[in-house]
């Protein structure tokens, strides 16, 4: 009768996994709406002084805080 108690409660696992996946989806989608504009402007600033091949901006989660990491690849 209480056989289900021995079974793994997969619903709670689903909830935990979903909460994390959706949190990460939302942060990529919404937190930095002007990402393209930021990229264009950074490229313009750096280009005034040196050649730029490519620029990559990523959001990272470090503990509770968020960080933007900016990689500028120089054109040589």
């Amino acid at each position: 009768m209480f056989g289900f108690l021995n079974k793994k409660r997969s619903a709670s696992l689903a909830k935990d996994r979903l909460t994390i996946a959706i949190m990460s989806d939302r942060s990529n989608l919404k937190d930095f709406p002007y990402m393209e504009e930021i990229k264009t402007e950074i490229i313009a600033v750096v280009k005034k002084y040196i050649g730029v091949k490519k620029i990559e901006i990523n959001t990272e989660h470090i503990g509770d805080s968020e960080a933007l990491s900016i990689d500028v690849i120089l054109d040589k």
Partner: peptide
């Protein structure tokens, strides 16, 4: 399946979304 913990409860779905 909801009762046996194998399917997400409505409250959980509402909370997530």
């Amino acid at each position: 399946m909801v009762q046996s913990g194998e399917m997400l409860k409505s409250e959980d779905i509402l909370e997530i979304l």
